[in-house]
Amino acid sequence: MRPEVLLLLFGESIMLFGALGILRFPDVYTRLQAASKCDTGGAMSIILYLVITMDAPALVRAKFLVLAFLIAMMNPMVSHALARAAYRYGVVPKVVVDMYAWDNP
């Protein structure tokens, strides 16, 4: 067993926990947290495993790294936009303290 396999197994288990989190969490915002964090971390670790183990010219590996960079830039941006849109759409969050509703009545 080589040590790079740990990256693949870690990414797979994190993806599985992210899907379970989307199923189990109570409202949209906590589901969004599970989706954005687990998808970004799992996808980046799986793509790093692929880059390390495949036999290809260096430019193709750089292309895979560009894919990982784009995932890391775009996934939090879309989750931020969706969170604000869900709040404006009228989904009431199940929270203890809501300072956003204090400032925007």
Partner: peptide, 16 residues
């Protein structure tokens, strides 16, 4: 997140 999914010990809030 994995720990929160297993134990469900969440206490959410929105801060500024």
């Amino acid at each position: 997140v994995a720990k929160n999914v297993i134990f469900m010990d969440i206490n959410p809030g929105i801060v500024k």
